[in-house]
């Protein structure tokens, strides 16, 4: 087991380094929820709701490319950027070590 470290910027601008083990087959969305970030994740990780929308400010090039479902969903969003991703489609592994994610998805009502 290796601890993967990366930075997360919350909606209020606060930044925190997270350490998540790589042997629990977690997605970034699941890791953020488990770390008490306010993420809806309505669809449970099927790239259907975009409520786990994040911007990858550092480390984007190392993260595996998007699948068709994720591309299609991001294409429909009004506030997507060139470095937007869905956290549910990013796995916690060595490829995100040192990355910087900014949370964009809508909060709970």
């Amino acid at each position: 087991m290796t601890l993967i470290r990366f930075n997360v910027e919350n909606r209020d601008g606060s930044v925190q380094e997270l350490e998540i083990p790589d042997d629990m087959s977690l997605s970034l969305m699941e890791a953020l929820k488990a770390s008490d970030y306010n993420i809806l994740a309505t669809c449970g990780g099927m790239a259907l709701c975009a409520t786990c929308h994040v911007q990858v400010k550092e480390g984007l090039s190392k993260i595996p490319e998007m699948g068709d479902d994720e591309i299609a969903m991001l294409d429909t969003l009004p506030d997507a950027h060139h470095d937007s991703r869905l956290a549910c489609q990013i796995r916690i592994n060595e490829l995100i070590e040192g990355a910087y994610f900014k949370i964009l998805g809508i909060e709970h009502e």
Partner: peptide
């Protein structure tokens, strides 16, 4: 036309106790 997003909808106004949608 920015796609659809799931929402609780009018049920949210039925005075039910709601926590995180």
């Amino acid at each position: 036309l920015f796609g659809l997003s799931p929402k609780l909808g009018p049920i949210a106004d039925w005075s039910l106790n709601v926590e995180k949608s």
